[in-house]
Amino acid sequence: MSEAAANPVHDWIAKSVAENPVILFMKGEPEQPRCGFSAVTVQILDHLGVEFVGVDVLQSDALREGIKSFSDWPTIPQLYVKGEFVGGCDIVREMFQSGELKTLLSEKGLLEA
C-alpha cells in the first residue's frame, strides 16, 4: 500500500475496497472476462453464490497500474474481501479447493448459512 495521499487512483481504489464487501479487480466484465485467470476467479465466486462487484481494469491504464502498486501485486485478477486483499487467481483457487474461501466468506457474513 502506498502512503502517498496524492495518488487519486489509489484513493479511488481504497474507497471502492472499503465500500464493497467483495470486489474483484479483473480484466473484462464479470459477464465477459477477457482473460482466463479472471474467468476462473469469477466462476469460483459465482459457484459459491457470493455477490461481488467486478472492476474492469482494462478500462484505464492508470487503474491497471494503480491496482498493482496499491496491492503490491503485479498480476490481475485481485480479490478483496471486507477491505482485505485475499489474493489472485492461484490463491483464490487454492482456497476454494480447500474450502477456506467458503469459510472466510461465511465468517464475514457474506454467504447464506
Binding site: 503490491d72 501485486w73 503485479p74 498480476t75 489474493g87 492461484d90 490463491i91 482456497m95
Partner: peptide
C-alpha cells in the same frame, strides 16, 4: 501466509514481470 509467499516470489522476479512475463502462476 500465502499472499506473503507469492509476493516474495513476485519480488524476486519483478524485472521479468515488468517486462516479458505476462502471467506467472505460483505454487
Amino acid at each position: 501466509p500465502r499472499v506473503a509467499r507469492q509476493r516474495m516470489v513476485y519480488h524476486a522476479l519483478a524485472e521479468e514481470l515488468a517486462g516479458p512475463v505476462h502471467a506467472l502462476s505460483v505454487k
